[in-house]
Simulated scan of single mutants.
Amino acid sequence: MTKFTEISANSSAETVLDRRKFLAGIGAGGALLALPGCESLGGFSMVDAVRRLLYLSSERAFTRLTAPGGFWDQQVAQIGLSNMLGTRGGIVSSILTSTIFKDRLEDAFADIAVEGAERAAPIVTDAVRLIGIQNAIALINGGPTAATGFLRESMGTTLVEAMVPELGQAMRIASEPLVGELLAGLTGINISGVAQNISTTVDNAIWSEMGVEESAIRANPRATNDPLLIGVLGAGRLL
């Protein structure tokens, strides 16, 4: 085993452990969403039901997005590369001389994108816990992604704005030598611009996945084993 292979193996193991700690952390946040409400729902209100729906949707979405070898690695592996590389002629050709080389570069950017998702997760959790919901019943009775759409509209560009500086820094100090070689070779590259593009793509992926998970929960609330969601969503639309 070469020294580089040993380093890569150790780095991969550390990444898996870090992601497990991250997912455990957002899972622990579920207890914070159990807020007292009206007695007709056993001590919970419709607002609590919407928050629980949003929290579970986000938890599942982030679990899928950050899982090694999962949706993220398969679908967003090339995140930011097209915006960064453009048509830089000989420089790009010399860097991307083989499939293996390109795959390593894509993996490096996938890891940076995962950092963005991990940074966004607690922001979403806090927003779910604190956000004011004017008409919770309408959201419960809404379409398959009504609650996710409401939260995204309420948060605006919060996630993108939070991720841009961090991802720009992650690119500058990336441990993958190929990232450094790429940044050094492409004279005049706008790292902030690339970080903005990556952050926007991460943002879109987060909300898309949350919508998928919300739809799945609405379609089969019993699968959540959550009494509140089963009681509210399982009985059909509320009047």
Rank of each mutant, 00 (worst) to 15 (best):
E115S: 15
F109Q: 06
V179Y: 03
S175M: 06
L41V: 03
I173Q: 10
S57A: 15
A216Y: 00
V114N: 06
A108T: 09
G142L: 08
A31D: 09
G142S: 05
V164P: 10
K21H: 11
L85A: 06
M84K: 13
A110T: 08
T99S: 14
I123M: 08
A28K: 10
N135Q: 10
T200E: 09
L41M: 12
L81W: 04
A110I: 03
L41I: 07
G89D: 12
R222S: 12
D226G: 10
I191A: 01
T99A: 15
A113S: 15
L183Y: 00
E166C: 00
A138H: 09
L81S: 01
T63Y: 02
R60I: 07
I7D: 10
E59C: 01
G156M: 10
D107V: 01
A127G: 03
M46N: 11
T66A: 10
T148I: 05
A28W: 03
R172W: 04
T145D: 11
E6P: 00
G37V: 00
F62L: 13
L183N: 07
S154P: 00
M84L: 15
G29V: 01
S11C: 02
S215H: 12
D226A: 09
M171P: 12
G116L: 08
G180I: 05
T157F: 00
T97I: 08
G89E: 13
E161L: 15
V50N: 09
G142P: 07
L228S: 08
G142F: 09
A121C: 09
G80W: 04
S58F: 15
A24W: 01
T224N: 04
T158E: 11
A117D: 02
E14M: 06
G30A: 13
Q169Y: 02
L239I: 10
I26H: 12
V92L: 05
G37P: 07
L159P: 08
R19K: 05
E6I: 14
L178G: 14
A120N: 07
L32D: 13
I230K: 06
G143L: 07
L151F: 00
I112V: 15
A146M: 05
T5A: 15
L139Y: 03
D48E: 10
S45R: 06
T99N: 13
Q74V: 02
F22G: 02
L130S: 08
M163Q: 04
I217A: 05
D73N: 14
T157I: 05
S40F: 05
A184G: 07
E209K: 14
A120C: 08
E176Y: 01
G70D: 14
G42L: 14
T99G: 06
L182V: 15
I191C: 04
M46I: 00
S82I: 02
V164Q: 07
I217M: 13
E118V: 15
G89C: 05
G37Y: 00
T148E: 04
L239S: 12
I133Y: 11
N83S: 13
T157C: 01
L229R: 13
G236M: 06
L229V: 08
I123W: 03
E213I: 03
N141F: 06
A61I: 01
E181D: 12
A170M: 08
L151S: 06
N225K: 14
F44Q: 11
M210H: 03
I189T: 15
